[in-house]
Nucleic acid binder design. Sequence first.
DNA 1: AAAATACTTAAGTATATGCCTAACTATCAG
DNA 2: CTGATAGTTAGGCATATACTTAAGTATTTT
Lengths: 107, 107
Amino acid sequence: MPNYQEMDRAYQALGDRTRRAMVERLVQGPASVSELAKDQPMSLPAVMLHLKVLEESGLVKSRKQGRVRTCEVVPQMLSEAERWLSERRQMWELSLDRLGKYLGVEK
Amino acid sequence: MPNYQEMDRAYQALGDRTRRAMVERLVQGPASVSELAKDQPMSLPAVMLHLKVLEESGLVKSRKQGRVRTCEVVPQMLSEAERWLSERRQMWELSLDRLGKYLGVEK
DNA sequence: AAAATACTTAAGTATATGCCTAACTATCAG
DNA sequence: CTGATAGTTAGGCATATACTTAAGTATTTT
């Protein structure tokens, strides 16, 4: 059960193309910070900041071994964000359905 | 097919609890600006700004009749945002699966 | 031990975001 | 017409975001 703040952070994290690109990279498998940075048209410290946002959102985690920090996706938050959208879409469909019945039944 | 900018805007829009609350209200059915504002602890102009963000993201549309602006959810963008997450989650599962096969844990 | 690698931290800047109040416009109701 | 209602616009302010370059700190590698 994600709270408001977690949801805020997860969606806010995904609201940036650089971070979505990082997630896209990480769903293929783990990567180091430099590997992530290679794909992005910005400095490594900037990529680090994006990584921090992703970690604070719970979408990604990382750990450091030696001098290399390895990052990977955390699927749970991905699922939770997905579920929120799915539930709302379903609610909307239900509303449409009720409207249809109302218009049909009540002439 | 959502482009990067649309995705940026949709997820960024959902990255704010006020706007998510507005979406939650609107999936139940259409509402006026004042109705949306009643639920929020802020001024009506502030709610208008959030509405503008939601409209620019494609998640919500509105039209004005007389002096009342009526807002409603646009399910398509909701679905597209949902699909992006779903596809990434599936990619991650595929990666895990490959890893499992590699390790010989699963067949 | 010296140099290269892989981050990490710091300091600064520019723009965007999230709010506010006040003043304005356009309808609708009596 | 007059006032209430619904929304809009404008101006301002405080904080957050998205970068930058420069200067660190650990770890390998040679």
